[in-house]
Structure formats: C-alpha cells, structure tokens
C-alpha cells in the first residue's frame, strides 16, 4: 500500500459517500445516470469474484464489500425507491450501454493476464470501468445545469483513478518487474474521458459559477 493508492481509494470512497448523501439528503437522483450506476455494479461484481476465496487484508475485504454494497444499493434506490425513482431522468439516460458491455467482454476474452474465469472477468471489469462514466457524462451534457453534489460526485470518481495512475508509476519505480499494462492503459483511457469534465469543473470553480457542460 502506498500513499497514492490510499488517496485513490479514499477519493473513490468519498465519491460514493457524496452520491449517497445526494440521494439520501435530497431524496432525488436527478442528474444521476442509472446506467453508469449499473455498469459500476457490474464492474465491482466482476472484479471482486475473489472476495470470499482470497483474503488479502481486512481493509481490502471491507472496501470491496462497501463498493459492491453501495453500488447495488444505489441501483436499487434509483429503480425501486418510491420517492427517489420519480426523479430519475429516464428520457435523458438513454445510453445503449450493452454495446459497451459486449465490447469490453469480447476484449477481455482476447486480452487478459491468464485465460481463466476469474482473470477474464477481472480484465472485463477493468475495461468496463474505463467506459462506465460515459452514460453519466452524456446525461450531464443533456441535462444542462449540474447540481453541486452531482458535480462533486463525478469529480471525485474521476480523480480516484488519476491517483491510481500515480500509484502504478510509484510501484513501477519501486518494485522490480512490476507491470500492469491492462490496468495502466485502461486507467489512462478512463481518466482521459474525464478531461473535458475536469476542464469545465475547474472553470466553474475558478469563476465560482454553476457547472455548465456545453450541449
């Protein structure tokens, strides 16, 4: 564990807490893409198949349970909670993400560390996470003004993988034969997808204005 990875995990945890706060405090999920939440639930379920088979540390197990539990709880809330579900932007959240799921799974069948059930699903989860934010970014552009908590949620979600890139650089420099091409390349693609969001987020922060993404 290094400071970059810990910062990444904490930033990821903060993004989850901000989203839970937004939904719980405002009893609304307006501006949140259910499709991105469902993709993230798939990411965590596919990545943490080793949850019960391999114990790495209490921290690792607890964080996996938190990410799986929170993503499923948010999907449930947005689909079935009688108050929250009314504020879901169903007509704006129309990204056909099964194409993404199919492409990522196909890529995982071709590109993986080892051809085993667990490794193929692990690679699938890495590729899927790289593109999971797309429905959310499309929804933000369509829904125009973005409320503060939603903007902060997306910001922290994007920032966490940037910390992981620093973690991989650090580990590459300090650990012999450390190579994680699948994670690194996917992490770079994932963070790059946030580039324009980070730009407009910075502009809104500098001008102390509402976050506006160009349509």
């Amino acid at each position: 564990m290094n400071i970059f990875r810990l910062a990444g995990d904490m930033t990821h945890l903060i993004s989850v807490l901000v989203l839970l706060l937004k939904i719980y405090a405002t009893k609304s999920c307006s501006g949140i893409s259910l499709k991105t939440q469902e993709l993230y639930a798939m990411v965590f379920l596919a990545r943490y198949l080793d949850l019960f088979s391999d114990f790495i540390s209490l921290y690792n197990t607890v964080m996996k349970l938190v990410f799986i539990g929170s993503s499923l709880a948010i999907v449930w809330c947005m689909r079935y909670h009688r108050v929250v579900r009314r504020s879901y932007d169903r007509e704006l959240d129309t990204f056909r993400y099964w194409i993404l799921v199919g492409a990522c799974f196909t890529l995982a069948l071709v590109l993986h560390e080892k051809f085993s059930f667990q490794e193929v699903f692990w690679a699938f989860s890495i590729y899927l996470e790289a593109v999971a934010i797309l429905p959310q970014l499309v929804l933000l552009q369509r829904s125009g003004n973005v409320d503060n908590l939603t903007g902060q949620y997306v910001f922290f979600l994007g920032a966490y993988r940037a910390f992981y890139i620093l973690n991989w650089i650090y580990r590459y420099l300090t650990e012999p034969r450390f190579t994680r091409w699948i994670s690194c390349v996917s992490g770079l693609v994932q963070t790059a997808l946030y580039a324009d969001f980070f730009y407009y987020y910075f502009i809104s922060w500098k001008n102390n204005a509402k976050l506006q993404l160009p349509a």
Binding site: R5, D9, D50, D54, I56, R180, S183
Partner: peptide, 10 residues
Amino acid sequence: SSISDHHDEL
C-alpha cells in the same frame, strides 16, 4: 494464495 499479484488492488 492462488491469486496473481495484481489482485491486491481495488
């Protein structure tokens, strides 16, 4: 354990 080393990250 059976896992390859990269599963130590979340």
